[in-house]
């Protein structure tokens, strides 16, 4: 009996010395493939650290972070001042934003007889989504596509029905290029759409586009690359028509780096740069400035540092655009603010 007790005691002691550290995070569904890949890659390097990431949506991630039920959050749209103040009040710590990768929205369409990659001006996209441009052969679309014969058919507009970072980037862009959109509709993960049908998720939107002739919608770049969906070029702030790709999205982030604010809460839609794709967006990790558990804090810090540096090589295979090196440098500086 005594021998058995001793054995139990030894087991207990040994399990403390090789302690498993488990970090939990929640939020963005858009970034889920990346973070789950990071978690498994990091676990191979550091078997004692386990990162659990739940893709419950950016809004849910922010709520859980404020409530203190997760160690870190993740979002596709930056937290508002009000949310940051609430976190400060409830958790007693500031929340820092760290961009981890980039994504983009592309305009996808289905016009019978048109297989060309169409070019869209900002005015055309805003006009279509405000319901002012209703025909495909509208001069605003036709003048950008001189070689394409566009039909006189009604445009069917498709948008996301579920709240999402994809919508956030799309309406953020429309707000920047159209004062009318900004005043009438505004920016959010869900908005009051002036026109159009709603599809659930990227697959819902692209499904509607496929089935409805003469329709247009927006989908994530990643989704359109993986599913070989036809999409158009968009005119950027330098006046060039740019096709969305990982390179042009990173170019947008590099172009926006000159005006990166100290807290990284930046929108990079319509960013400057000759090759910058205008409907690009960051996705962020949300890290508390203070953490009570020192072991967890150290592990979280190491995981973040790894993600910003070595972890970046896992972005491209998953069709996320990697961070420009200038941004990574600024973020490593920012990490000094973490009080652990």
């Amino acid at each position: 009996m005594i021998r058995r007790l001793c054995a139990l005691a030894i087991l207990a002691v040994s399990s403390v010395s090789a302690q498993q550290i488990s970090l939990t995070g929640a939020g963005s569904t858009f970034a889920y493939p990346l973070y789950s890949d990071w978690a498994s890659q990091y676990h191979k390097l550091h078997p004692n650290v386990e990162v659990n990431y739940q893709s419950i949506g950016s809004g849910g991630g922010i709520r859980q972070l404020i409530a203190g039920t997760v160690d870190f959050g993740a979002t596709d749209g930056p937290m508002t001042n009000q949310e940051l103040a609430e976190a400060q009040q409830k958790r007693g710590t500031a929340i820092l934003h760290f961009p981890t990768a980039l994504g983009a929205d592309v305009p996808s369409y289905n016009i019978p007889g048109v297989t060309a990659e169409l070019k869209f001006t900002p005015q055309a996209l805003a006009g279509i989504y405000l319901g002012h441009i209703t025909k495909w052969n509208d001069p605003e679309i036709q003048k950008a596509n001189p070689g394409v014969k566009l039909p006189a058919a009604n445009i069917i507009v498709v948008h996301r029905s579920d709240g999402s970072g994809t919508t956030y980037a799309w309406v953020d862009y429309l707000s920047k290029v159209s004062p009318e959109w900004k005043s009438k509709v505004g920016v959010g993960t869900s908005v009051k759409w002036p026109v159009g049908l709603g599809g659930k998720g990227n697959e819902g939107v692209s499904g509607l586009i496929r089935r409805l002739p003469n329709s247009i919608g927006y989908v994530e770049l990643i989704y359109s690359i993986q599913n070989h969906i036809l999409y158009g070029d968009v005119k950027n702030s330098s006046g060039n028509y740019v096709r969305a790709s990982l390179a042009t999205v990173t170019a947008a982030a590099a172009g926006a780096n000159s005006f990166m604010p100290a807290d990284f809460r930046v929108s990079i839609t319509n960013a400057p740069g000759a090759q910058a794709y205008p409907i690009s967006t960051y996705t962020w990790l949300l890290i508390p400035e203070k953490l009570n558990n020192p072991q967890k804090a150290a592990a979280l810090k190491a995981f973040l540092r790894w993600g910003l540096t070595d972890g970046q090589k896992y972005t491209t295979p998953l069709a996320y655009a990697p961070l420009p090196s200038g941004v990574v440098q600024k973020e490593l500086q920012q990490m000094k603010k973490l009080q652990y």
Partner: peptide, 9 residues
């Protein structure tokens, strides 16, 4: 179902 996960505020 559509809006709950991303609802903030």
């Amino acid at each position: 179902a559509n809006e709950f996960t991303e609802a903030t505020g």
